[in-house]
Amino acid sequence: MLPVKSLSLVDQVADRVRHHIAANGLQPGDALPSAAELGQILDVSRGVVREAMQLLEASGIIEVSNGRRPVVRRLEPVMLAATFDHGLATRQFSVGDVGAFRRTIECETAALAAARRSDAEAARLLDLAGEMEASIDDPHRFTDFDLAFHATLAEACGNPVFALTGRALTLSIREMIQGGLAAIRERAEWDRVVATHRGIAEAVHGGEADNARRLMRLHFDDAITRLRV
């Protein structure tokens, strides 16, 4: 077996910066020491610090701007979506695998939203369900309102991990979502999609977690059936 190699100097600096963020309780947007200051504190060259900053930026941990101190970066769905995209592109898992995972996340998100939503979020979901109904004859607008509906649910669930994951999954399989809606042929089926979303919105509004979960599961079962036809 080959001997275990120690971390490079760049990796060590990156680890020290991560530790600094955690140990000092830094939040998104909080500033870090400058590259020059880090070099002095850690007794390394500015070139090493610069490479470590580039590594942390590529990992989505910090944000670097010219002429400004690096800051702690806020987690964004697109960052996690890139991981899902890579998994799909390299066939480490399938679109069906991601869809099944999203189904689980969305069902629990709906249940959590019913328990934790604000009045404004509950009203927003009802409004979006109404917009979906009014947009049945315009698939592009319908899709936009459908995505907004699920994004609002994600925010309303009160769990930032569910919210981040759910929105990332939606970004990653947006084409699959659009394909499922494009597969709808009959007005009765459009009406069922709208009725299910309205039912979810009403369940969330009424604090009915089990019913919200059940209706979301029905929504995904219908979508999966359409894609397999």
Rank of each mutant, 00 (worst) to 15 (best):
P70I: 03
S94G: 08
G206A: 11
P160C: 01
F162E: 07
L80H: 00
E186G: 11
A148D: 15
S45N: 13
S172D: 01
T170P: 00
S8W: 14
S65H: 09
V98I: 14
I173D: 02
G47A: 12
P160T: 08
A168V: 01
R228A: 14
Q54I: 11
I184M: 11
A123F: 14
K5F: 07
I41W: 03
I224D: 01
V10K: 08
M176C: 02
D15T: 07
V13R: 01
H197S: 06
D85A: 15
I177V: 14
L227A: 10
M132C: 09
L2W: 08
H219C: 08
V49I: 15
T83H: 03
Q178D: 15
T83W: 02
Q12D: 13
I200H: 07
V72D: 04
S34E: 08
D191A: 15
S65C: 05
H150T: 14
G180Y: 03
A120C: 07
H140C: 11
I61Q: 11
F93R: 10
P3Y: 12
D43K: 11
G29V: 07
D11A: 03
F220D: 05
Q40R: 14
T225V: 10
D137T: 15
E189R: 12
V71S: 00
L26W: 13
A129G: 12
R46M: 07
L42H: 04
F145C: 12
L112A: 07
P3W: 06
E131K: 13
V13Y: 00
H20A: 11
D85P: 09
V17S: 07
R167G: 08
S118E: 02
F84A: 00
A120F: 10
V64G: 00
A123I: 15
A148I: 13
L55F: 06
R50S: 02
D191M: 09
K5D: 13
A14Q: 05
G29R: 10
L88R: 02
G47F: 10
R213D: 04
S94V: 09
R167Y: 01
D119H: 14
H20Y: 15
V78S: 05
W190D: 07
R167E: 06
A52Y: 00
G158Y: 04
S65V: 04
L227W: 05
I62V: 12
G39I: 13
L75F: 06
P3D: 08
R46W: 00
A122N: 11
S172W: 00
S172R: 01
E189M: 09
A188S: 04
L171M: 03
A14C: 10
M79V: 04
A22R: 13
A89D: 09
L218I: 13
L153I: 11
R18D: 03
F84E: 00
A212T: 04
L2C: 06
S59C: 03
R18H: 03
H150G: 09
S94H: 06
R91Y: 01
T152I: 03
R213F: 04
R167W: 02
D43G: 11
R50T: 08
A110N: 11
F142H: 13
S135E: 14
G25L: 12
V17L: 08
G96K: 08
V98C: 05
A122K: 12
S6Y: 08
A134P: 11
A183M: 13
F142P: 09
D30L: 06
H150D: 07
Q92S: 09
E208M: 12
R167C: 05
S8P: 15
D97H: 08
G29Y: 04
S59I: 00
F142Y: 14
R91M: 06
R174A: 12
